[in-house]
Design a protein around this nucleic acid. Structure first.
Lengths: 337, 337
DNA sequence: TTGTACGCGTTATCAT
DNA sequence: ATGATAACGCGTACAA
């Protein structure tokens, strides 16, 4: 009949009683403070004896700190399931927070209902700060964070006007530009792009880089817009491009997953890569090495992005006022172009 | 000079003062209770005015409930990054918890350090229950949950002796058996398996099902053991199988990702699928449709698994004592075998 | 070194 | 319907 329910937990009071000291002394051995060896021994014994475990809610209440930071993922449909980077970013953040003895709590915002609940959670003193990945312009969550004055860091550059909250990311535009420039240098004449997630900074910036690289030769008719950074979008986008310009001989896919989808369409259409058409992706995710041929792409240091994001919130929690940081994202050139 | 630091937040006390009523009355409008229209109006105005937002830590302290449940992912290396199901499970759980007005907080356990911190977190009253995915035998976290008497649910069947904590999952052994039986029925003579994650119940059960399906024809020399459910493991495993038995004509890969890796090796080796060798996977993840040919596999209702897991903890939190549930996982037969 | 007492922000019980 | 007031479990000046 093991009950899993009420389970009255031992408190400092109980420990004190069992050890024959006052609650203050118990509290002192728990945190750091001067306490005699004798008392300490007795108290430690008592703790083990009554099975005491601190109530963090109470501790937070008095300390006004939770030792936790939120990791917010907006729009999980595309992100949690499709974005190969998000996992690595989380891991990087967790690692960094871990060594600072902070708990990372990952919150997913999947509906209006979620939004409201997460807002309450954030306001409730559960976290000392937040890492927000892929915020869109005018996101309610962004507003809440601002209103709360909660230490925060954006992954990807900050939506709209955004006050002084720092962010960490890569130079999407610059990298895209460099990549496409190199693709063009290979002698390709008709270069198109499958542009994804244009409502996100990364998506918009990659398109901007594409355009900049091509300059006068840019042709708006050669960019296919798709909603997500995923494989299916790549399939769709490539079909569109192919029908619009059968003579296409170069393609910049907004992500490796998109490129993988495009690759399949090209194969089915009988176009050899890279012989007939040069294809490049973005992210250097696991996709890049799984395709045949492996993808030329831009390396995104996902794990480090997460680590830096964590560092930036931590610094703010400690009263600092750090600047944004953009990490290097080198081109890695393989066989697809 | 916008400070993001201290930011003294308004309390019920402030609201009461501003509205000219007592704290009790304020609390009553916040939660439900009888309060005159006049007071209510005044209080609501005051709330908006001073920008009051409830402190959940304080509320939890007195209510002894956090309205949150933890989603624990152990060993994120393989899971968070490689397992295509984990995201869907999370989403399913979040959805269910969301409608019950509970916050899902996802915690990743990536190191010994993490283990200890998460244990503290769990003990701290931050969550009313926990969903644990992929616990191994003798996991410290499992022990903590047991000792705490925290309402919990395992995804996959419970490690070791495990008390009366319910779980949700599929019949890995049965499904694997049915799948391999069908593969064998196609006339394949030498059927091998790439077995992964043998230290997890799902991995061990899939191997057991494979063995059961083959009966007397089972040959231990035809199973290659690999650590993870991922693509790279598939590559490694298939190479091994091929070198051990060049005449192999059927392969059961422990997951779709593994099958995808195996497929590449087969292609490189000049073996046609399904003509020369029949290949089947497991999970019915997005991998299954991306390969050429698409994979015959076992459909895993990941989203529903998550939803049921959430339901099971919720029920326990409300004092119930639910039974384990195993969800149907039908075979979906495509072209790879 | 140790004990006392107050406060953290809410909810809940009790009179009124 | 509303206002005091006592918990909730803990940290921490302050006094001893």
């Amino acid at each position: 009949m093991a009950r899993t329910q009420p389970q009255k937990r031992a408190t400092v009071h109980d420990v004190a009683a069992a050890a024959g000291v006052s609650r203050g002394t118990v509290s002192r051995v728990l945190n750091g403070g001067y306490v005699s060896a004798a008392s300490r021994a007795a108290i430690e014994a008592a703790i083990a004896d009554v099975g005491y475990v601190p109530n963090t809610a109470a501790r937070n209440l008095v300390r006004r700190r939770s030792q936790a930071v939120g990791f917010l993922t907006l729009e999980p449909h595309s992100l949690l399931l499709e974005d190969p980077n998000i996992g690595a970013i989380m891991l990087g953040a967790n690692e960094e927070l871990s060594i600072a003895d902070h708990q990372m709590v990952s919150l997913v915002v999947d509906s209006a209902r979620d939004t409201e609940r997460v807002a309450r959670y954030l306001s409730g003193g559960f976290v000392d700060g937040a890492i927000v990945v892929s915020a869109r312009t005018h996101d309610p969550i962004t507003r809440v964070i601002g209103a709360l004055g909660l230490p925060a860091t954006f992954v990807g550059h900050p939506p709209d006007l955004s006050r002084d909250t720092p962010w960490v990311g890569i130079d999407n535009a610059g990298s895209a530009r460099a990549l496409v420039t190199r693709l063009a240098a290979g002698g390709r004449r008709r270069i198109g792009m499958i542009a994804a997630a244009l409502d996100r900074d990364s998506g918009a910036d990659r398109l901007a880089g594409f355009r900049a690289a091509l300059g006068d030769r840019f042709d708006a008719g050669l960019v296919a817009e798709v909603p997500l950074y995923d494989y299916a979008s790549g399939v769709k986008g490539m079909r569109e491009l192919l029908s619009r310009e059968p003579a296409i001989d170069g393609v910049f896919a907004a992500s490796d997953a998109v490129a993988a989808g495009a690759l399949e369409v090209l194969r089915d259409a009988g176009r050899a890569v890279p012989a007939d058409v040069g294809l490049v992706g973005f992210d250097d995710s696991s996709w890049a090495l799984r395709t045949q041929p492996p993808l030329s792409t831009v390396h995104q240091p996902a794990r480090e992005v997460g680590a830096v994001a964590a560092d930036l919130v931590l610094r703010q929690i400690n009263g600092d006022h750090p600047d944004p940081v953009v990490l290097p994202s080198p081109i890695v050139w393989r066989d697809s172009a």
